[in-house]
Amino acid sequence: MSERDWPLWEVFIRAKAGLAHKHAGSLHAADAQMALENARDVYTRRGEGVSLWVVPSTAITASDPEDKEAFFEPTGDKIYRHPTFYEIPEDVKNI
């Protein structure tokens, strides 16, 4: 019964020029060309995009949610990275 699955691909769509590609979903396909064509057929049936990326899912290295706190912690206390940290009198005009 069982047969080999086609590899899994992640699909990214650029909705229009000027915007970044955004993750839309995934699909199985035998190779990159087929992944592109299938992505067009299932993820852009109503003009959702002007450009497509397909990436083998196995090629993505992701951060580990278990380490989320430790991994992103260094930024937590650096409030001086935000403009609101600095005090400027109200009557000084903004740039």
């Binding site: 047969e3 080999r4 086609w6 396909a29 035998a30 190779d31 087929m34």
Partner: peptide, 11 residues
């Protein structure tokens, strides 16, 4: 089935 197998063989 043959389509799925052929696509893999082609790739």
């Amino acid at each position: 089935r043959w389509v799925r197998e052929a696509a893999l063989a082609h790739a």
